[in-house]
Design a protein around this nucleic acid. Structure first.
Lengths: 193, 193
DNA sequence: TTTATTCTAGGGTGATCACCATAGAATAAC
DNA sequence: GTTATTCTATGGTGATCACCCTAGAATAAA
C-alpha cells in the first residue's frame, strides 16, 4: 500500500511552522490547508482524529528533526563541549533564519494543552526526555564511566532547559543572545566538579 | 474621578489566569467575561482597544506581581544565593499550587504574538529586562563594585532564562524539578570565577 | 478489465470568534 | 435636584472555528 499522495506530509510541515509561530489555538485548519496547498476534502481522511491527531503527527516530525540535529552535532564534534556548542549554534542559526518568530518545535504549542491531561502533553514529555537521553547515548562511545554519564545527564537537562528558556526569550527580544546563554550554562556546570 | 466598578480588575485577573493556561488565542472574550463575573456590555468601555489592550493590561499586572515577588525575596534574604533561591522557591510554590498547568505570567501568551511586531512583544521585552535590572538594583545596597554588578547582571540573565525554560518544562512534565534547575545554574555560575 | 482501496471535491453543520451600536442605568460633581 | 460622567444591558454584525457527509475521481491489486 504505497503512498499516492504527499498531502499528509505537506499538512504536517505547514502545521509545524504555523504552530511554532502562533501556537495550537492560534492556527485554524483553513489556514493550514490553504498554505500547504493540500486538498481541503482530504484532511479528515488523513487525520480522522482531527486537529489533535495532526498535532501529534507534528510532534513526531519535530522530534525526528531535533534528534537528527543532535546526532549530527555530536557525530561531527570531537569533544562534549564542541557537541553542545554545535547543537546550540544550529538552533541559533535556525531561529535567526526564521527571524526569531518561531518557537521550539515541541514546547511552543504543546504548552497550551497542559491542563487537560491528554496525549499531546504526554508525548511532548516523552520527546523532551528523549533528547536528553539521546545526548547521553551519543556520549557513551567516548566511554566515560557510569557516574560521569549520570552527571552529564543532569548537565544536559540543565542545558536543554536553558535552551527552552533561551528560545522563548529570543522570540521576545528578537535576538540570539538568550539562546547562547545555554553555552555558558554548560561550561560552568561542566568545569565545576 | 474615583473608580465605581472593579469589573476592569476582575477581567484582568481572570484573563491572566486563562492566558497563562491556554495562551492568548486559546481564550475567548466570552470565557473571560463569564468566569470573571464582569458585565458583558462593559468590556469595550474598559478596553476600547479590544483583546490586545486587555493583554497589555494583563502584562502590566503580571509585571507588578513578579516585581513584588523579586523584592520580597531579596529583602528577606541575607545573601545573593538565598535571594535567588527564594525567588525560585516562590515560583515553584506558585506553579505547584497551580498544578503546573499555568505558565510564566509574561511569556506564556506574549510568545504567540512575536511575528507582528506589536506592542505586546515590545512590552514583554521591556518587562523581562526589568526583572534582571530589579535584581541587580536589589544587589546594590550590598555594595559590590561595578564589575561585580556587571557580572551578576549576566548571571541573573542566565537564571531568568533557565527559569523561563524550567517553567515550560515543568508544565510539560508536571514536576517542580525543571524549575529547580535554575538554582544549580546560579550556583555553578556564581562559584565559577 | 474488474474489483478494491485510497484520496479528493464540494457543500454545509452549529458554535464560537472579536467587535460594535444604542439606550438606559448608576453614580459622581455641581 | 440638575447636570455630567461612568458604566452596563441587550442584541446584533460578518467571519472564522473544528468537524462532517456524500459522491465520485484516482490509483492500486486481482
Amino acid at each position: 500500500m504505497p503512498r499516492r499522495s504527499d498531502a499528509k506530509n505537506k499538512m504536517i510541515k505547514t502545521a509545524l511552522l504555523l504552530f511554532r509561530e502562533k501556537g495550537y489555538h492560534g492556527v485554524g485548519l483553513a489556514e493550514i490547508l490553504e498554505q500547504s496547498g493540500a486538498p481541503k476534502g482530504s484532511f479528515y481522511h488523513h487525520f480522522p482524529g482531527g486537529k489533535q491527531e495532526l498535532a501529534l503527527a507534528v510532534l513526531d516530525a519535530a522530534n525526528r528533526f531535533m534528534l537528527r540535529l543532535i546526532d549530527n552535532a555530536f557525530e561531527n564534534a570531537g569533544t562534549v563541549e564542541a557537541a553542545v556548542d554545535a547543537v546550540i549554534d544550529d538552533i541559533v542559526e535556525l531561529a535567526a533564519s526564521e527571524k526569531f518568530s518561531l518557537g521550539c518545535p515541541v514546547t511552543s504549542f504543546s504548552v497550551e494543552l497542559t491542563r487537560e491531561d491528554g496525549e499531546i502533553r504526554k508525548r511532548a514529555d516523552t520527546v523532551l526526555r528523549g533528547w536528553v537521553q539521546r545526548m547521553v547515548e551519543q556520549l557513551e562511545p567516548f566511554s566515560p564511566d557510569q557516574d560521569e554519564l549520570k552527571r552529564y545527564t543532569e548537565v544536559f537537562r540543565a542545558v536543554l532547559t536553558t535552551i527552552e528558556g533561551g528560545w522563548i526569550v529570543s522570540q521576545i527580544q528578537k535576538s540570539a543572545e538568550p539562546l547562547l546563554i545555554a553555552k555558558q550554562v554548560f561550561r560552568s556546570m561542566d568545569k565545576l566538579q
